[in-house]
Amino acid sequence: MSNAKWRKLFRIVNDSHLGLKNCIWKLVGEDEPKHGFVPDDEQLGENYVGDCGALNGPFEFKKIEWLKLPNRVGYKPYENAPTQYKTQDLSIIIEQLCTIGSFEIDIDSEGVTIYGYKA
């Protein structure tokens, strides 16, 4: 996927006001997906994403194999607390992605996966 399309995607997510904080990044050359956060506009360069927890530093858009926006995110409000869950309605993001261009996406019970490269 092009750099411009990734920037459009992140603009849609940030403009949705859903407050999506967590996402899962799968980067080319990395064996395991990594939990991180959705970058805001200030963290996006012309051809890179600033530090968002996926590689502990900036990386180029072309390294993104896929990105998952989860429907449900678990968190602990304090240490030793039981895990609590926040659910997110991603339908507005899906609808907007479908109107602005052709994005390779999969929707399942866990959330929405947006592909840079699909095997």
Rank of each mutant, 00 (worst) to 15 (best):
F103S: 08
D31K: 13
Y48G: 00
R7F: 00
Q88H: 13
N14C: 06
F59V: 01
P70N: 13
V112C: 04
H35K: 07
R72W: 04
A81C: 05
G57V: 07
P39I: 05
E42N: 09
V112S: 05
E42A: 13
Y117C: 10
K26P: 08
H35D: 03
L27Y: 01
G57R: 09
G29F: 10
S2T: 12
A119R: 10
Q96G: 00
K21I: 10
F59W: 04
L69N: 08
E46D: 12
R11S: 13
F103V: 02
N3A: 14
K34D: 05
A119S: 14
T113R: 13
D15K: 14
G45H: 02
I107Q: 10
V49E: 01
D89F: 00
T113S: 15
P70V: 11
F103C: 13
K76S: 07
G19F: 06
P58S: 11
K118C: 11
E104V: 12
M1Q: 11
V13L: 12
A54R: 00
L18K: 03
T99Y: 08
W66V: 05
G101N: 08
C98G: 14
W66S: 15
D31W: 06
I94L: 11
C23M: 09
Q84F: 08
L44V: 00
E42R: 04
Y48W: 10
K76T: 07
N80S: 09
A119M: 10
Q88T: 09
K34S: 04
K76V: 03
F37Q: 12
K68H: 04
K21G: 12
E30R: 13
Y48S: 01
G74F: 07
Q84L: 15
N22F: 09
T87P: 06
A81Q: 05
K62Y: 15
M1R: 07
D51A: 03
K5T: 12
F61I: 03
F59I: 00
Y78L: 13
D51R: 03
K5Q: 15
W25D: 06
I107S: 08
I105Y: 06
I105C: 11
W6I: 02
H17L: 09
G57H: 10
G57D: 09
L69D: 02
G29L: 07
C52L: 01
H17C: 07
Q96E: 14
V112G: 06
V38K: 03
W25M: 03
G111D: 09
V28Y: 03
S102C: 05
I24G: 04
G111F: 06
E42G: 10
G53F: 08
L67S: 12
R7Q: 08
S91N: 08
R72K: 14
Q96P: 01
D108H: 02
S16N: 00
S91H: 03
H35R: 10
I93P: 00
R72G: 04
G45R: 01
F61T: 01
N47C: 12
L18C: 05
E46T: 11
I92K: 00
G116Y: 05
E65P: 04
G53D: 04
I92Y: 02
H35N: 04
T87L: 06
A81T: 04
C98R: 15
L97C: 06
I64R: 08
S91M: 01
K8G: 06
L97P: 11
Q84I: 13
W66F: 14
V13I: 15
C52F: 00
P70S: 10
